[in-house]
């Protein structure tokens, strides 16, 4: 009933006047924008990359995490890094050590497992930016998304940008976005052409035959931009 109501189906676009009069949307004159939960942010990235495992149940999984997690715990915990599809299970299956949870979780406000949680807060912090931008897992998702773009039928950059937008934001780019992203991808192509070693590291692992490494690396860079957008991690 709620989700089919006209109130729920409103847009979350808000005028300056409305946000001044009702900053917290208590009068429900619009939909509220809500940042996704920790697990869902990761799930969305994996889904955009097209590799989300839909397996249900089973043992906890150990996706890659940065080094140094156990420096400040009494004991070094075992973290046998998962391989294959287990890297792409939904976030709710990630093994949870109470004294040092998978760092994505507390960074994006997942509650501690030892207390009841009546609501999750939704903070907006620089550590979240570092996680989405630099974490090894998220970079892998960007590479996998780039792989999907390169393997697609798209024949022009315009089409590839459109495809990338659809896979991440489920909409087509605005003219501004199209132009801005094209400029970005062009700059990356140029840079990686001059830095082939870097291009090799950044490009997806499985390239269609006709692709230059430097061009492929540029699409990883573009995928990384999209996976870092506020819109991508927000339920609009």
């Amino acid at each position: 009933m709620i989700v089919t109501s006209a109130t729920y189906q409103q847009t979350s676009i808000v005028s300056a006047e409305l946000i001044t009069r009702d900053p917290r949307n208590r009068l429900l004159a619009r939909q509220s924008r809500i940042r996704l939960e920790a697990e869902a942010i990761r799930d969305s990235s994996i889904q955009s990359a097209g590799v989300l495992s839909t397996k249900i149940g089973g043992r906890g999984v150990y996706p890659p995490q940065p080094a140094g997690i156990y420096v400040l715990t009494q004991q070094k915990k075992a973290w046998p890094e998962s391989q294959g599809n287990d890297r792409f299970r939904r976030g709710m299956y990630i093994f949870f050590w109470r004294s040092s949870p998978y760092p994505l979780m507390p960074t994006f406000d997942a509650p501690e497992a030892s207390v009841t949680c009546t609501r999750r807060s939704r903070s907006n912090t620089p550590l979240q930016a570092l996680t989405l931008a630099n974490d090894r897992s998220f970079f892998e998702f960007a590479q996998l998304l780039a792989e999907k773009i390169l393997q697609s039928d798209a024949t022009s950059d315009t089409d590839r940008i459109r495809l990338a937008m659809q896979r991440t934001l489920a909409r087509n780019p605005t003219p501004f976005e199209q132009t801005r992203l094209q400029a970005f991808v062009d700059a990356q192509k140029t840079w990686y052409a001059k830095n082939p070693q870097h291009a090799k590291t950044v490009a997806p692992d499985f390239l269609p035959a006709n692709w230059e490494l430097s061009d492929a690396a540029a699409w990883t860079a573009l995928s990384r931009v999209l996976l870092n957008l506020d819109e991508f991690i927000t339920r609009e």
């Binding site: 996680t131 931008a133 970079f139 990356q188």
Partner: peptide, 26 residues
């Protein structure tokens, strides 16, 4: 600090361009 370094293959110029692009679109 966790995840402080850019991923391998992304140099400071690339990171700056990345931040700029993300900021512009945001």
């Amino acid at each position: 600090i966790l995840n402080l370094s850019t991923p391998a293959g992304i140099e400071s110029q690339g990171q700056a361009e990345f931040i700029d692009a993300v900021s512009d679109l945001n």
